[in-house]
Design a protein around this nucleic acid. Structure first.
Lengths: 334, 334
DNA sequence: GTGGCTGATGTTTGCGTAAACATCGGCGGT
DNA sequence: ACCGCCGATGTTTACGCAAACATCAGCCAC
């Protein structure tokens, strides 16, 4: 910077002013400084800048494996939104969802250059790990019900699920089975609860829950069980991947979709429209979730707006070919 | 830090020594300092540290959309490997693969706190954008043939493709059609070239290339074309997602897989085993690619080892149910 | 005992930047 | 003409840390 100042014949402070787009610099001087910067290939040192300003303009994102579409898409949206706000995003992967690993990620975080953190995981693991967050680091959480303790942004799991169940009931199915996600996922739990609630509200019996782990393979295994249930005519899968496995299992067992069994998924991954048959599912607006996360965390940093509470992003039902009235037409109900 | 020093009754330099795990500190003193740190909740300021040391211990990763499995898995592996080496990973998303956007990402990078960059995209876009990288920032590239100009780490596209083609020829197919990826992807181009080379080497005719854009939807559209080709008994899809769409198109047109048409994919995404039928494909070791990227970039930073050149990671053929001898048994060939 | 050495610790300094304050020339109002 | 003010720029300082150097006590060899 001193070199630039010398070359431009000004003081380093003026260089600083130009580089920060400060007002009150003569246009002529400004051009000289810019020219000098270019000639010397000057680029501001972000470490020094951060040191002086006391902030890094960086947001940390903590998440488990990036193997679920939702996390990835959310992360991508966060990165994009953050970039638009002039913030960088630092990734803090947690290999295994154990308390030790989570604690490890947070202790790494302790000496990491971030102003705020967005956590994409069930917050219980976070609390259980008894982490102590740096006091000035703001936190926003996705996939959690901890709205009273943290700022939470999430898809409206409950609303989406009720839409799915209602869609199947409207088609005439007497009840809807549920292929749930893993128990330690808040999203999975929330979907299972809403499914149960929707059935109960409609006065329908709730079949036993079949559980997977989000993977297509687990959906296949669960599907083999469901295929054996004679009275199962409609299944709500907690995500599209498991729905894919379910479709394969049903196909193998000779149960046609949607003629014999209707299947509805959750997420609307890009591939869902290419399943056999194309999958009816609930579209999640991950981009919006990511955007809201960034906004929320920036608002917290600036200390305006609420410090906690939950923001829900609505889902949208995407009708494709995997749902239809039950065998016999379902006229018995409508 | 001064507070800690005061509380522990030592100088700030001793605190620094303890916090950096320096030798030559009396165990007793050390414990006192640690106690003081804990009491005051001291945590080192990474900005000051970076300023003093002249490095950030951060690697930037530039990539297009995280919607392809490969990029995501590579990114994840990079993040994990980097963390193991004590490095953080900063994400630089490029929304659209235009030169302007790429240039934008790099200019953001200019004032970003990174010591090195890993680029996950075709390097032509990078060069075309006439970016000027900060001189001391090291670069490693994935998905590119720029081995003579950059350090490149990539999956062995060519070897994998030849394995796929050979597998189909060995089953007795007279030739293999190719559902290729977009032209601007180096990986897609490389796979297409290798496919053509393998056929030529075997003295087989090369059918016209059908092109998609990696998405399942594009695979479906291409699949409708392929299904109309009476003599098409084997297809090599450049990735699993397109293979998924292809399977759907073939199914819709009444062409059975693998009885009438064999399909082989590339990537081995987790869902591939749940396709209808489960997909034979080439497994890519993304974790290894990511690990090697980090190693390569660190080696460059430390200035030991080669500054350029290409490292290839082998693929592995995963046999499932989507490939079989051609109708008629293929005995005419073997 | 004295010189030289080692290991433990303290002191000084500067990394690159930007806030705070200082300076200085010019301009309008009285 | 003089005061005061404003806009443009320069000077000083401190951000938190760690390298370099300085100090100092204890110990060994002769």
């Amino acid at each position: 910077m001193a070199d630039v100042a010398r070359l431009a014949g000004v003081s380093s402070q003026t260089v600083s002013r130009v580089s920060n787009g400060y007002a009150g610099v003569n246009e002529e001087t400004r051009q000289q400084v810019l020219a000098a910067m270019k000639e010397l290939g000057y680029r501001p040192n972000s470490a020094a800048r951060a040191l002086k300003r006391g902030e890094f303009r960086t947001i940390g994102v903590i998440t488990f494996t990036l193997s679920t579409t939702g996390n990835v898409r959310t992360l991508e949206a966060i990165a994009t939104s953050a970039a638009a706000e002039g913030y960088a995003v630092t990734l803090l992967p947690v290999a295994v969802p154990t308390q030790d690993e989570v604690r490890g990620a947070f202790s790494r975080l302790e000496e990491l250059a971030v102003d705020a953190v967005i956590v994409i995981m069930e917050v219980h693991l976070l609390d259980a790990a008894t982490v102590t967050l740096p006091p000035h680091v703001q936190v926003v959480v996705v996939d959690s019900d901890a709205g009273s303790h943290y700022t939470v942004v999430d898809t409206d799991q409950s609303g989406g699920t009720r839409t799915a169940v209602q869609h199947l009931l409207d088609l005439g199915h007497l009840t809807v089975w549920h292929l749930a996600g893993p128990e330690d996922s808040f999203a999975a739990q929330r979907r299972a609860d809403a499914w149960h609630g929707a059935l109960t509200d409609a006065g329908r019996p709730a079949p036993p829950v079949v559980r997977g782990d989000w993977s297509a393979e687990s959906g296949y295994r669960a599907g083999l069980e469901l295929a054996a249930q004679e009275d199962c005519t409609a299944v709500f899968a907690a995500n599209d991947q498991m729905a894919l496995g379910l479709l394969r299992a049903l196909h193998e067992r000779g149960r046609r979709v949607p003629e014999d069994v209707s299947v509805i998924g959750f997420d609307d991954i890009p591939e869902a429209s290419s399943f056999l048959p194309p999958l009816t599912t609930l579209h999640q607006d991950f981009a919006e979730v990511g955007r809201l996360c960034v906004q929320a965390v920036l608002r917290k940093m600036r200390r305006d707006g609420p410090q906690r509470g939950t923001t829900l992003v609505p889902t949208r039902l995407v009708l494709r070919d995997s749902t239809a009235p039950p065998p016999g037409g379902g006229a018995g109900e409508v």
